[in-house]
Every structure is written in structure tokens, then in C-alpha cells.
Amino acid sequence: MPRTGERGGPQTRARIAEVAARLFLERGFDAVTVADVAREAGVSSVTVFNHFPRKEDLFLDRAADAEQLLHATVRDRPAGTGVLASLRAATLGLLDARHPLSGVNDRSVPFFGTVAASPALIARAREIAYDLQRTLAGELGRDPGFTGDADLFAAFFVAGYGTVLVQTAQRLIAGEPHSAVLDEHRARFERLFDALRAGFGGSGGDQA
């Protein structure tokens, strides 16, 4: 039976996610059960599943943030700003803030190391990437300022973004100098946007 007041809201969700991340990083994802997380967070397993439908989502808990960011980047961009310019600004803004979604947060290296060690997390990460691709394609398809192939653009952007993150994590895990890796991280994002501009600029990529 759930404990009194344990269902909570954002604070309960945040506490559960924080506890889960700590346990997964300490012991490895596959060695920790949902019951372990619930017990450590002081809630029931039912409450955990009320906030996180899958165990994998306890660790990959930024998917909703990424989806909301894609919606806002397309829908709420300033007048006269194209989709590509808006995506670039959002991407570099995350990087400058060292946001977890930038791939260069202080916890990025242990995060990616934990994901790489778990087939379940790898599979879920691929599902999330596909969902984000569909989210972006849907937004572009409804945007009158974008006249290109929304599905193709979204596939290139999401796959390219993920590739930059994963390869940066691999280099950091291998012990390469942090400053050099971060410089290349930004440069590779710029090359991604250059490629998108070259491929889609005439149909909405640059104004888009």
C-alpha cells in the first residue's frame, strides 16, 4: 500500500529520479531493481511506476524535456527566425549551459558509461531517439515556413545530434583532454548544421 502522501508530484518524481540515478551509477543499471529504488526513495514500487512507466525511464528521464524543447524550438521561435537557426540556437544554448541534454554535463561521462553497459538502456535510448524524430517531423510538417522533407530533415538532425553526443562521450571516457574534446564537440555541432543547411536550405532549412 502506498505510504501517506507519497504519490506527490514533481518533487516526488525528482526525488525518485535522483535516487535511481545514484543507485544505477553506483551499482550498474541491471543490478538495481525498481524495488531497490522505491525503498531508497521512501515510496512504494507502485508510486515509482506512477511516475516512470518503465525502469529504463528512471535513468533516461530527460526524454520529456527533449520533446518539449523540440516543440518549443519550432513553435515558439521568434518571427523571422527559421527552424534551422532556431535549432542551432537551442543546441548551442544547451551546450553553453552544460545542460544534461548537451552531452557535456558534469555527469555525462558516467551517464553514458552506464547506458553503454546496459542493453536495456541502449534499446530504450534508440526508442526515445525515434520518438524525438517523429516529434520533430510532426512539428515541421505543420509549420508553413518549412517546405522541405520533414521526415528526412528530422532523421538527419536527431541522428546527427545523437552521434555527436555518443562520440564525445567515448572520447571523454577514453581519457582525452576535456578542453579539446569540448572544442571539437561544438565544432561537430556546427558541421551538423552546415550539412543541414546545405541539404535543406533551399526548401526551408536555412530560413527554416
Score class of each variant (00 low, 15 high):
P119T: 10
G145W: 03
H71T: 03
A116W: 01
G160L: 00
T168W: 11
A187W: 10
A116L: 13
T12K: 05
T4K: 15
F193R: 08
A41W: 06
K55W: 09
N50T: 10
R186W: 08
E67S: 15
G145F: 05
Y130C: 10
A187L: 14
R142H: 12
H51N: 06
G28D: 10
A66Y: 05
M1I: 14
Q207M: 00
D151F: 08
S203E: 13
A35T: 15
V166C: 06
A169Q: 02
G9V: 00
G175V: 11
G141S: 05
E56D: 03
Q11S: 11
E26L: 12
R186F: 06
T147H: 13
V19R: 11
D61R: 15
E127N: 12
R188S: 14
G8C: 11
A159I: 02
V104W: 01
P110D: 02
Y161L: 11
T163A: 15
T73V: 14
L196H: 01
G113F: 00
Q170R: 14
E6Y: 07
A64L: 13
V104P: 00
G9N: 14
P53F: 03
G93M: 08
G113L: 06
A89D: 14
R39N: 07
V43R: 01
R39W: 01
L165F: 02
A155P: 01
A41N: 11
L95V: 15
G82T: 12
G42V: 15
R88N: 02
V164T: 09
S45P: 05
Y161T: 11
D30T: 06
A169H: 04
F200D: 05
R88Q: 12
L192E: 03
G199T: 12
E6H: 07
G145P: 09
A35F: 05
L94V: 05
A159M: 08
V46M: 07
R188V: 12
L87I: 14
L58M: 04
Q170Y: 04
V46D: 12
D36Y: 09
L94C: 07
F29W: 07
G80R: 13
N105I: 00
A159N: 13
A72L: 12
A90D: 04
A63I: 07
S102E: 08
D57A: 13
A123P: 01
G8W: 10
A117H: 03
R54F: 03
L165Y: 01
E184F: 08
A159Y: 06
T114S: 14
T33K: 04
F112T: 04
V115I: 15
R54L: 14
G5W: 09
P144H: 04
L25Y: 03
R124G: 07
T135M: 08
R124V: 09
D65I: 10
H71G: 00
G204I: 02
G175T: 11
G82M: 09
Q207Y: 05
H71C: 00
P110M: 02
L25R: 15
G202Y: 10
N50P: 01
E190Q: 15
A198F: 13
D194W: 06
Y161I: 02
H51P: 00
A169G: 10
S44K: 06
R107C: 00
L84Y: 05
V181G: 08
D143V: 09
R188D: 13
R7D: 02
H185Y: 06
F156A: 10
A117I: 06
A187G: 15
L84S: 11
R27A: 13
L165D: 01
